[in-house]
Design a protein around this nucleic acid. Sequence first.
DNA 1: AAAAAGTATTTCAAGCTCAAAACATTTTTG
DNA 2: CAAAAATGTTTTGAGCTTGAAATACTTTTT
Lengths: 156, 156
Amino acid sequence: MSVTPKPATGTDTSKARLRLWLRMLKSARGVEAELRERLRTEFSSTLPRFDVMAALERYENGLKMSALSGVLRVSNGNVTGIVDRLAEDGLVVRVQVPGDRRATLVRLTRKGQQEFARQAAAHELWIDELLSDFGAEEATQLAARFEAVTHREEGQ
Amino acid sequence: MSVTPKPATGTDTSKARLRLWLRMLKSARGVEAELRERLRTEFSSTLPRFDVMAALERYENGLKMSALSGVLRVSNGNVTGIVDRLAEDGLVVRVQVPGDRRATLVRLTRKGQQEFARQAAAHELWIDELLSDFGAEEATQLAARFEAVTHREEGQ
DNA sequence: AAAAAGTATTTCAAGCTCAAAACATTTTTG
DNA sequence: CAAAAATGTTTTGAGCTTGAAATACTTTTT
C-alpha cells in the first residue's frame, strides 16, 4: 500500500486526462490560430507582439527586459528580437536605467498605447465570438478550475 | 431588436470569456512547455516530432505529406522539414506512391514505431501527473465541453 | 584594489511556423 | 492533342522560440 498511488498507463483516469489534454490543446491551438490570422490580416501584427504590448500596457512605468521575459514566461533572448521590431515601428522605446548601465527599460510610446488600444478592443470582441458557447457563469467557473493547472506549474 | 446580440466590449460576459481564454492559454502553454522540456531532456526530441509520429502511428499504411499536414492542421511546408529530420534519424521513410510521381507516402519505420511506443508511454504518464487535479469524471465532462470550441473552428 | 560572483542583455545555432512562390506532375477542357 | 486548371510537394523569406555562450556592467569577497 503506497501513499502515492502508483502511476500506471492505461488507467481509466489517465485515459480521461489524456483525452482532456488533447481537447484542450486542440481548442487552444484553434483559437490561437484564429487570433494570429486576424492580427496578421487586420493589423499586420503577430501574437507575440500583442503579448509584449499587453504586458507593457499593464506596467506604465516600463519594464526591464528581464522583467518582461519573466512576465511573459518566455526566454530572455526571445524578447530582444520582438522589442527590436516593435521599436523599429515606433511602438515602444528603450530607456536607459539611470543607476545601472546594463539595464534598459522598455515602454510603450504614445503611438504604441493608441495602437494597442485599437487591437485590444478587437481582440476582446474576437474572444467573445470564439468562446460564445460559454456563458458568463460557466466561463467564470471553468477559469477557476484551470487555476489548478496553472498553479501546479511553479510559482505564479 | 436584432436577432444576434450586438457585440460589445466590456460586457460582464465578454470579460468572463476573456479571463477564461487567458487561463486556458496559460494552462495549455504551461503543460506544453513542460512536455517540450521533458521530450528534450529525456528523448532528445520535440513536440512537433512527437505529433508527427503520433499521427503516423494512427495510420499504419502511411500518409501523404498533404494528408499529414491536414491531420496536424499545420502548413504544408512545415511538415517537410520535420519529416526530413525524422527520416535522417531513421524513424520514418518516404515511399513513392505507385501511380503518382508527385506524391510520397510517409511511414513510421520499425525503429520509429518502437521509439514512439516508448515516448507515448512516458507522455501519458506526464499528462496524468500534470492534470492530476482532474478526476476521471471531471476530465470527461470538461473534454466534452471543449468540443464546442473545437467544432466552432470549421470542419473536424 | 583585485578577484570572484552575480545581474542584465544580446548573440548564436538549431528548429518550428507560416504564407507565398516555385516546381513537378496529373487531370481536365477546349 | 495542346493548353489550362488542379494537385502534391518543396523552397523561400520572415518571424518566433529555446538554451547556451558571449558581453558588459555591478556588487561582494578577500
